[in-house]
Write a protein that binds this DNA or RNA. Structure first.
Lengths: 322, 322
DNA sequence: ATTTAGTATTGAAACGTTTCCAACTTGATG
DNA sequence: CATCAAGTTGGAAACGTTTCAATACTAAAT
């Protein structure tokens, strides 16, 4: 493995000169440049990026921390984030926290030690107080504080839109179906929007919210169905919630959309091969991803951002459930 | 940002000693250790991993190169790979090649420059001849040569099993439906197994294979349906192929499974909320992921592997399409 | 021929670790 | 008391770059 020194010797110049040729910095005579390039060619030299990162005290690595890449929403997000990073020659490090706070902290430590250039996080911890150095951070869908810029879909408008669409589809008594995972989560606003719009329109509504349905789907959806027999519309906080509800409802002989209209949130289905195709509030995932990275780059460059939360408009996508 | 030197000064020892304390290497008196730890605590010192990587000439970073993390099969794979890597303190770098050969090559260069400890690749290029240094590589589902160890599901047995299950479900004239993407792909063996078992059992069968249906689903599935009206069973090379076929078939009034039984491959659905739930040959994704990483670690340690292809048994998972 | 103002190039320091050898301390042994 | 081995510690080199002050050229202007 030859280094810059070998190139310098072969080309008969100093290492500094080789460095300047490689990085196109400073002035170097065409003739010298030619010699150096020839030497590089001959030795099959490739710059050692690790050494460079070390010397420069910074790397072109950005970490993406999320609960699980397995979830379709996150994998779509990761896809666009990687793409956007690559455009600027940055690399992506993937950290699955499993949604476990202690693992988030552990990863944060690790990222600090590894001097990543920035972090995009979808976390439960308020990472602000746990990251000691000033690594630039953008969070998605979580609002912590001014220091950590948040990119999110317009959840509030999403909630309002969902309510309106349910009503438009004929629902007289719609319900919001959700759960609470993190107090920092922006997703709360979906409920807020839903409620506010219902009140504004004078529509009777229900709010069903339990802390962690993941533990026991059976009782979460069973209880809902049993308790609110007269509900004829459901705005589920997530497409997965919607899908599960529909499945349980079907088992109880409830037909969707005939008996109950259902709208989800996310838009994880990008095709129509699996049914039901859920009517949903589509998150602008690509836009969110690209914006997040662009903002992160600005922070890395030292710019200060003009806002602490960036909300991107959502759209309704009609499926088979309304 | 304080370094090892600051710690050494504060503790009144030499940098070498601090290093030994941090890494628990060599002998150091309890009293000295205490002093050093105190200094570390006081200065809030964290070791600079980048400097360490540089000095050590190796990093604990493994790259995963795949066509698109967005695809559910790959995102599940990535999930387990990250998990397995983390157990040994390794980090995961994610590279979406988009299936583009030139991008694969570009990433390979980059990974070499970044001195990653190893690569797990699902690629179209024969990466063997394009990676000049000897970075350990494990490939998934692609068999190139002895140098690159391959981890794959037992595609051949999968093909045989699919044929048998179709027959068992009542199909008299089953078809294999696939495409050719890479000559190195192990997935060819699905067809081989299917064909061989059909011949062994004396079952009449069809093989439908076109190069790249992604371009034009309409004609790919349309042609198949038009051409083989008497087919009553389909083994699709992928669950996505199966789902698409079913959708197009439905439009032509063909009922699944009444008129045609369908079996896919992969097992990307880990739930039953979306329909049809496809009968499928389930890839042991978790096992493949963990094995791939374990083998990669062995290669990193310098061990030589006893085989050049590791095939993991598959299972049939019944859904609603047989 | 000498100065001048660029332009090109050199050489060495620095980045934060690990590692290795030499040197110093101990405490036990003869 | 001298010797020795084992246990500790110090100090410096090395890893492959970038960068910067200093020096060496070059060509035009005097």
């Amino acid at each position: 493995m030859s280094g810059i020194k070998d190139v310098a010797i072969l080309a008969g110049v100093a290492v500094g000169t080789v460095s300047r040729v490689i990085n196109n910095t400073g002035a170097v005579k065409p003739e010298t440049r030619r010699k150096v390039k020839a030497a590089i060619e001959q030795l099959n030299y490739v710059p050692n990026e690790v050494a460079r990162n070390f010397k420069m005290q910074k790397s072109k690595m950005v970490a993406l921390m999320l609960p699980s890449i397995w979830h379709p929403f996150f994998s779509e997000l990761a896809y666009y984030i990687e793409d956007e990073l690559d455009r600027e020659g940055y690399k992506l490090m993937l950290c699955n926290s499993g949604g476990k706070p202690e693992k988030e902290l552990y990863y944060l430590d690790m990222l600090e030690q590894n001097k990543v250039a920035g972090i995009v996080g979808i976390t439960y911890n308020d990472i602000e107080n746990n990251v000691s150095t000033d690594i630039p951070i953008i969070s998605i869908d979580r609002h912590f504080s001014k220091k950590i810029t948040c990119v999110t879909s317009d959840n509030f408008e999403g909630g309002r839109l969902a309510l309106r669409e349910l009503v438009k589809a004929g629902s007289k008594k719609p319900a919001f179906m959700g759960s609470v995972t993190s107090v920092f989560s922006e997703t709360m606003n979906r409920r807020e929007g839903f409620v506010q719009e219902a009140e504004a329109l004078g529509v009777e509504y229900i709010v069903y919210e339990e802390s962690d349905p993941v533990q026991d789907d059976e009782s979460y959806y069973g209880n809902f169905i049993k308790r609110y027999q007269d509900v004829d519309g459901v705005f589920a906080i997530t497409d997965m919630f919607a899908a599960k509800y529909i499945e349980y409802a079907k088992q109880q002989g409830i037909r969707v959309p005939e008996d109950v209209k259902v709208i989800g949130y996310d838009g994880i289905q990008d095709h129509t091969y699996f049914h039901p195709v859920i009517s949903t509030i589509r998150q602008p995932v690509e836009e969110m991803a690209r914006l997040a990275i662009k903002l992160l780059f600005k922070k890395i460059e030292g710019e200060t951002l003009d806002r602490d939360t960036y909300r991107i408009p959502i759209t309704f996508r009609k499926g088979e459930t309304t």
